[in-house]
Design a protein around this nucleic acid. Structure first.
Lengths: 222, 222
DNA sequence: TCTACAAGTGAACAGTGTCAACTTATTGCG
DNA sequence: CGCAATAAGTTGACACTGTTCACTTGTAGA
C-alpha cells in the first residue's frame, strides 16, 4: 500500500529564487546550445519544473530571452568600465572602449547575437531610447538610474567620443553621428566574425587592431 | 451522380516551373512577413499545393531559405555592378561599391538579415570560401564561373580596395584585412539600421555619408 | 491502349509556444 | 491548534511547426 501518487516531491521555492534559477538554466542552455535548442520545455525539464510554470515568471519566451539579453548588457558594461580604469587620455579611452566592446562580443557570441542582432520586441523601447538620445544631444545630464542597460553601454561609447571631440581632436564635431559610426564599425566586426566563422577572416587580433586603427585615423584630424 | 471526389483539379506543372513558382511565393512572403511567418505550410497553401510537395524541390526549409538568400546575392551584385559603371577613379569606385552595398542592404532588410546575419548551415561552404580567399591573396586569377555568388560580391569590394592599394594611396597594403575592415564598416551600418529601427539613429543619408567619409579617411594616407 | 515515371497528396510523428483550469503546499490569523 | 487565503506548481489541451512515408493520379512515350 504505498502511496498511489509516486511521490510528487515537488520542491516549492520562493518566486524570486525560482525566477533566478530558471534564468540561470535558460542562460546556460542558450549560451551552449543556441536559441533553437533552447525551448521552453527543455528549460523547464532541466530546471526540474513544468513548462507552464515558466509562464508564471516570464510573460512569454521573448520575455525570457530579453532577460538573458539584459544579463549580457551587464557583462558588456563591465568590460567597458574595466577597460578605461586608470586611462586618462581621451583617445586612449575611446580605443579602450571600442576594444572592450568588440572583445566582449566575440567572447559571448550567442548573447551578442541575441542582444544586438535580433529584434526582440520587448527590447525595443523606441520612444524611451529616442528621448534619451535627444537629451544627450542637448547636453542634459541623465541620472544613471534612469537609463536602460543598453543605453548605459552606448552612453559610454558616446561619452568617449564626446571627450575626443571636446578635446578638439576630430575632423567632425557631430558627436551623435560619429558615435553611431564608431558603433557600427565595432558592431560590424563582431557580427561578421561571430556569424561567418567559416569565411576565413584574418586573425581576429589583427582584424580588431586594424579596424580600430582605421576608424581612429578616420575620426581624428591629421 | 457527380464524382465523389470533389474535383481535385490538381494542376500538374513541370518541376522546374513549380520550383520557380514556390521560390517566388516564398520569397515574396518572406520579404513581406519575415522569417517566422513564412512556414512551409503557408508557402504551400499560397502556392496552391501541399506542404509535402515542397520537399520534392527543396531538401528542407534551410535549403529553401538559402535559395532565397542566393537570390539576394544576385540583387546585391547588380547594385554593385551598376554603381561603378563609368567610374574610373579608384577611390570613387571604392566609395561607390560601399554605398551600393549599404543601400542594397537597407533596401532589402529581410533578405539582408537572412544572407548576412543568419548562419544558414547550407550557406556555409567553409573550405570553398577559404580557398577562394587564399588564391586571391596570392593574386591568382579566378574564373567568374568558379565563384559563389557571395564570393563575387565580396570579391568586388576586395577588388576595389586592391585598386586603391595598388595606386599607392593607402596607409596599409594589407588588402585582405583592409577589405574585411571595410566590409565590417558597411555591414555594421546596415545591420544596426535594419534591426534597431527604433534607436533614433541620425538620418540614414547622413549616417552613410559620414561613415564612408570616415572609413576612407582612415584608409587613405594623408 | 498500356505502362512507366513524374507530380502531387494524406496522414501521421514528434516537437513547439501557450493558456485555462485544476491541485497542492505554505503561511498568517483567530 | 485548525482554517482560510494565497502562492507555487501541474495537467492537459490547442493550434501550430518541420518533416517523412506510403500512397494516388496525371501524362508522355512505346
Amino acid at each position: 500500500m504505498t502511496a498511489r501518487k509516486p511521490r510528487p516531491t515537488r520542491k516549492r521555492i520562493d518566486a524570486g529564487a525560482r525566477r533566478a534559477q530558471i534564468l540561470q538554466v535558460a542562460g546556460d542552455m542558450f549560451a551552449k546550445d543556441g536559441i533553437d535548442a533552447t525551448s521552453m520545455r527543455r528549460i523547464a525539464a532541466k530546471a526540474g519544473v513544468t513548462a507552464a510554470l515558466l509562464y508564471k515568471h516570464f510573460a512569454d519566451k521573448d520575455a525570457l530571452l530579453t532577460a538573458i539579453s539584459e544579463g549580457f548588457f551587464v557583462t558588456l558594461a563591465g568590460y567597458m568600465e574595466k577597460a578605461i580604469e586608470g586611462v586618462n587620455d581621451p583617445v586612449a579611452r575611446l580605443k579602450a572602449q571600442m576594444r572592450a566592446y568588440v572583445t566582449c562580443g566575440i567572447d559571448n557570441p550567442r548573447a551578442y547575437h541575441l542582444a544586438f542582432m535580433t529584434a526582440l520586441p520587448r527590447l525595443r523601447r523606441g520612444a524611451e531610447m529616442k528621448a534619451f538620445r535627444e537629451r544627450r544631444r542637448r547636453g542634459e545630464p541623465i541620472a544613471e538610474v534612469e537609463m536602460t542597460l543598453g543605453m548605459k553601454c552606448f552612453g559610454r561609447l558616446e561619452q568617449a567620443v564626446a571627450d575626443v571631440v571636446e578635446a578638439k581632436l576630430t575632423r567632425s564635431k557631430d558627436v551623435a553621428t560619429l558615435s553611431e559610426v564608431v558603433w557600427a564599425g565595432g558592431h560590424g566586426l563582431v557580427s561578421l566574425v561571430i556569424t561567418h566563422d567559416d569565411f576565413g577572416f584574418s586573425p581576429t587580433g589583427k582584424l580588431v587592431d586594424q579596424s580600430i586603427e582605421l576608424m581612429l585615423h578616420g575620426l581624428l584630424r591629421p
